[in-house]
Design a protein around this nucleic acid. Structure first.
Lengths: 127, 127
DNA sequence: CGGTATCCGAATTGATACTG
DNA sequence: CAGTATCAATTCGGATACCG
């Protein structure tokens, strides 16, 4: 029940509706990680998002699941295993984010801002 | 000095960098208004964004100016006049947001969420 | 007209500890 | 391993009030 209000309000336009779904400090990155790796476990995602807390990761993942972006599969094993992946909607959203990502790369380039590597795959590709 | 920290940190990928620039409750809409009208004065923008306060509008406008998205032109007249328009970067960003907007429209459609009109131009176009 | 300054409550994010 | 619970800190957003 943590902070589910104020989201999903009536939207003024499609950009509004799309941004609502990717707002949050880590959602863009989660989308990115899941797109790159197809399937990821909780701990893998946490390692891929340096600085994220378990709470925020869980919270974002739940919201994205609720939004139909992410699929969560629980395996009844010991030790427990949970795998996250993108749904069809999540994949199309990622494609839509593609051009935005390209714009961002150019912006980073222009401003000479620094891009930090996560130690995993190269994230600064243009798709 | 109002809340300028914590933004423009090192980015993990282009989507990160782009989302940083459009986060904020009204930035997407400001971009949209300026794209549709080309040039807008402060009061016109305020009317185009029903519910926004002067503070938030100023704050967002300043950040977007700092990010090189918006051009601000002050005329030394009485009464004072200030005109806002998109820069080249702002226009390309808007194009990149186009596919995201289309995705959002589909999402609204799928979920049956409501789209509220602002009373100005039709914002729900697909571009 | 086009802002700025200040205060306040709400929402978001973070740190830490604990659990099945 | 994959979370949940709790509390604290930070940030966001809105309501005035005032200024060049």
């Amino acid at each position: 029940m943590t902070a589910r209000s104020s989201r999903r309000g009536p939207y003024v336009c499609g950009i509004d509706a799309a941004l609502d779904v990717v707002s949050g400090k880590w959602k863009g990155l989660i989308l990115w990680e899941l797109d790159a790796h197809h399937v990821r476990r909780f701990a893998q995602l946490r390692r891929g998002l340096p600085g994220v807390s378990e709470k925020m990761l869980t919270q974002h993942l739940r919201e994205m699941e609720e939004d139909g972006l992410v699929h969560r599969e629980v395996f009844a094993e010991v030790p427990p295993r949970v795998e996250y992946s993108l749904t069809e909607h999540g994949r199309t959203l990622n494609q839509a984010l593609g051009s935005l990502g390209a714009w961002g790369i150019e912006r980073i380039d222009r401003e000479g801002s620094e891009v930090v590597a996560t130690g995993e795959t190269s994230h600064a590709r243009t798709r």
